[in-house]
Simulated scan of single mutants.
Amino acid sequence: MPSSPSSSAQAARDALAVRLTHLRKDAGLSGKELSARCGWHPAKTTRIQKGEAAPADADIRAWCAACGADDQTEDLIATARAVDSMYMEWRRLHRNGMRKVQEDFSTLHENATVCRVYASNGVPGFFQTPGYATALMRRITDFQGTPDDVADAVAARIARSRFLYEGNHRFVVLLEEWVLRSRIGDAEVMADQLAHLLSVMPLASVSLCVIPLVAPRVIWPLEAFYLFDDRHVVVETLTAEINVRQPREIADYAMAFRELGRMAVYGSGARQLIESAIAALE
């Protein structure tokens, strides 16, 4: 299993640091000489080469100019920006509100044939009702202190549910039973959300399974993650969205999904757990 959900980002940052280091060495420059040409302290060069500091666009331009490698500038800048996008803090993503992130997720779903989801902290967005989404996103906005565009963000999130009915899309979802029992909004909102889960279960595009609270664990509870086909994993932590694209790590998440699935019940077993959660609200 991945040792850290941000390990892909760090590995890519290290690879960029190696490229910059090789560029300096190929130019026959010491770290101090390159620093002098760039006009910054040698400690900055050291941090960049160790992958401890992410170089800005201007830093890369100065580095390439100092090494006489202007032809590599744009490629290195594009690489650095890709690394930066792997680990994105929610407050940064939500700096102008939450709607844009919801629209970006819609694009991911549109381009994926199979989306496998392990949901340990809430109902996946494409299954959410307006009431549940509003209660959840209102709390997230308050917690993060980011601009309030909850109404627009909810509309964008709910629009994602169209992929359950349109195109050749398939959704395989593993829910921890805790998600069914954790009340988001009031009892009426939660009951409506659970009833909606029952209504989408018969869809041909949906495979919804539940991991019972009492199931013997063959793998520990993990952060929620979305596996888009076998090419991209999005991991959701408290503070950040992690984008994993390394094949080795994608394979790890796929294996984790299979292991989690071994503990789950589906069909009538999953329906009974949802109905039990509804009954508990009464």
Score class of each variant (00 low, 15 high):
residue 9 A to P: 04
residue 58 A to D: 09
residue 204 A to Q: 12
residue 237 T to K: 07
residue 225 F to C: 08
residue 12 A to E: 07
residue 230 D to Y: 08
residue 229 D to Q: 13
residue 125 G to V: 08
residue 177 E to R: 07
residue 281 L to E: 02
residue 213 L to H: 05
residue 264 A to K: 07
residue 62 A to T: 07
residue 260 L to Y: 04
residue 4 S to F: 14
residue 255 M to C: 12
residue 233 V to S: 04
residue 220 W to Q: 14
residue 247 P to W: 14
residue 32 K to P: 00
residue 193 Q to E: 07
residue 37 R to A: 12
residue 200 V to P: 04
residue 10 Q to K: 15
residue 21 T to C: 00
residue 221 P to T: 11
residue 181 R to Y: 01
residue 111 N to T: 14
residue 168 N to P: 01
residue 171 F to N: 00
residue 253 Y to P: 01
residue 238 L to P: 02
residue 255 M to S: 15
residue 79 T to S: 06
residue 98 M to H: 05
residue 79 T to N: 02
residue 150 V to I: 12
residue 93 L to V: 15
residue 59 D to V: 10
residue 154 V to H: 01
residue 41 H to G: 03
residue 87 Y to T: 09
residue 234 V to S: 13
residue 231 R to M: 09
residue 14 D to C: 08
residue 200 V to K: 03
residue 57 D to C: 07
residue 205 S to Q: 06
residue 86 M to T: 08
residue 84 D to F: 10
residue 146 T to F: 03
residue 127 F to D: 01
residue 282 E to N: 15
residue 18 V to S: 01
residue 256 A to K: 05
residue 37 R to H: 07
residue 216 P to E: 11
residue 210 V to S: 03
residue 199 S to T: 14
residue 77 I to D: 06
residue 16 L to A: 01
residue 141 T to E: 08
residue 119 A to P: 00
residue 185 G to Y: 06
residue 17 A to N: 01
residue 62 A to S: 14
residue 163 F to P: 04
residue 213 L to D: 05
residue 80 A to D: 01
residue 216 P to W: 11
residue 77 I to H: 01
residue 70 D to Y: 04
residue 243 N to W: 07
